[in-house]
Design a protein around this nucleic acid. Structure first.
Length: 489
RNA sequence: GGUCGCGUGGCCGAGUGGCUAGGCAGAGGUCUGCAAAACCUCGUACAGCGGUUCGAAUCCGCUCGCGACCUCCA
């Protein structure tokens, strides 16, 4: 298999053949959550996209160091670097210690990641755990003459930076357009230029999160942590940096500027941006208030939700779209995904009971090759899934006797399906929910047996009554040549 | 207003100069005592108008509609 992995690089706006700086090692950095409130489904989509990147890179043999931070300070509520820290604000509202907020929502975040089977990163550093690195970075930027201090705060000097380097390349922005379009905001009087951004902020009286620094008590600017931590764990040059599309500007643009300012190197070679999850065509976001929490999604307890959907259904739904496209949430789409996912998993089950017989009439190598081809083309999970459905059709045809498979091909098919379904796409068998327990199951089995006896005696009235009564309770009987099974809804 | 992107069959959603995406729904069939379930088979779509080309849904131009970023957000 001589296929090469291609990744769409937001910086060059092209798909590029992936070749790591120091193979077989790969450095991957992804912007993690700011832990001041519950994560919503849009956040989940982003982390899921990079979960696939992480999984696939490992699957094809790379040793990946995956760093995904937790932002626990420095993220301002307001605009223009003048607002209150998000975590500090929330702490006041909830009357908690800031670190309690951080802990609470970080725990919640991890729980959500677990529910959706999103693997933990190799390193999950926090901004507050890297104050020293951030302060050092501010010093280096100051030394390079690309920042200035005003009354205990330090601002990055975008204009000076732009004279030597190019600000706005990633997001395709023209610095003059930016200036003419930037709004006039309160609290910007300290900045020499509206485009400048804080890399260190003085803590005003009453601010509850602050640390000593050469410029007095304060806290780091939001953009700084990612630069500091990616540099620390992956070096000043590394392979891939990921994040949501909405972080491209200004966050990632600022990161590049800081990296060059402090290290002389821009950081990642490849920038990957996941697109947004939309609801009724609009971006799901915290400020819009149109987000569901994963819990609401699973229980269906939200006005926009007609029913609950299992985590793996949601995972499947998301992976049916490509990460660079927007994906619109709808009940119809999720219901379709629910059935599609079930068909996939049923097929995987069927595969386990398949019998080999002589020569193959099916081409497993071609299927395998198609699966790799899909993933190598910028992690195209929708295509991969369509190829897996081709596999499911093959499985069903073999089961039906219209195709045959040899012993060795059967083994190949089993590992192929299991690798791509579970390892690469990260699905997992879900345990039954909804009131199904051992006693219920046993009771239904008793009724199934009674019905079977009735059928043998040609007493179809009784047999059908059992079937209908169970159906009214939400128990669906499914007859097949191998026997009868049931679903509880 | 600036920058970028999108508009695909009933729905979701890939692809992208000639080669069936796939899923859901729907139709037909196999199976069944009848159903259901399961499985098989089928659909011929690319916003509109021009242009380039032997050939365009795919490239170019214009028009219309939608969205993202430009301020915190994955």
């Amino acid at each position: 298999m001589d296929q090469k992995l291609k990744i769409y690089n937001s910086l060059s706006r092209k798909k590029e053949i992936f070749s790591p700086i120091n193979p077989p090692h790969v450095g991957l950095y992804v912007c993690g959550p700011t832990v001041y409130s519950d994560v919503h489904l849009g956040n989940v989509r982003s982390f899921l996209s990079f979960d696939i990147v992480f999984r696939y890179l490992k699957y094809i043999g790379y040793k990946v160091r995956y760093v995904r931070n937790i932002t626990d300070v420095g993220h301002l509520v307001d605009d223009a670097d003048s607002g209150e820290d998000k975590i500090a604000k929330k702490a006041r509202l909830e009357a908690l210690e800031p670190m309690e907020i951080v802990q609470k929502y970080a725990n919640g975040f991890h729980e959500v990641m677990r529910i959706f089977n999103i693997q933990p990163p190799s390193i999950e550093p926090t901004a507050t755990g890297h104050l020293i690195e951030q302060i050092e970075m501010v010093k280096r930027i100051l030394k390079a003459g690309l920042a200035y201090e005003v009354d205990g705060s330090v601002y990055f000097d975008v204009r000076s930076y732009h004279e030597k380097h190019s600000y706005g390349e990633l997001s395709g922005r023209n610095i003059d357009d930016l200036i003419s379009n930037s709004r006039t905001l309160e609290g910007q009087d300290q900045k020499r230029d509206p485009l400048d951004f804080a890399i260190w902020k003085k803590a005003e009286k009453g601010h509850i999160m602050h640390w000593p620094s050469p410029w007095g008590e304060g806290f780091p600017g939001w953009h700084l942590e990612c630069s500091a931590m990616s540099t620390k764990y992956l070096g000043s040059e590394f392979d891939i940096h990921g994040g949501g599309m909405d972080l491209k500007f200004p966050h990632h643009e600022c990161e590049i500027a800081q990296n060059i300012g402090a290290n002389g190197k821009s950081g990642p070679r490849i920038w990957m941006h996941g697109n947004m999850l939309t609801v009724l065509g609009r971006k799901m976001s915290k400020s819009e208030g149109n987000g569901f929490t994963p819990e609401q999604l699973i229980t269906g307890n939200h006005q926009l939700l007609e029913q609950g959907y299992s985590p793996m259904t949601v995972r499947f739904f998301m992976l049916q779209g490509h990460y660079t496209s927007t994906l619109d949430f709808s009940n119809d789409a999720l219901r379709a995904a629910e059935k599609g996912y079930k068909r996939l998993m049923d097929g995987v089950d069927t595969l386990q009971s398949l019998r080999a017989s002589g020569e193959s009439t099916v081409d497993i190598e071609a299927l395998k090759s198609a699966c790799f081809e899909a993933m190598n083309d910028d992690f195209n999970t929708p295509i991969l899934i369509s190829k897996l459905f081709d596999g499911i059709k093959t499985i069903n045809l073999i089961k039906a006797g219209s195709e045959k498979i040899s012993d060795s091909d059967l083994d190949k098919l089993k590992s192929l399906m299991s690798d791509f379904v579970f390892e690469v796409l990260g699905f997992r068998q879900e345990e039954k929910t909804s009131g199904e327990n051992e006693i219920t199951s046993n009771l239904v089995e008793v009724l199934i047996n009674l019905r079977k006896s009735a059928k043998l005696k040609k007493d179809f009235t009784t047999a059908d009554q059992i079937r209908d009564d169970l159906s009214k309770m939400g128990v669906t009987l499914k007859d097949s040549p191998e026997g009868t099974t049931f679903d509880i809804s």
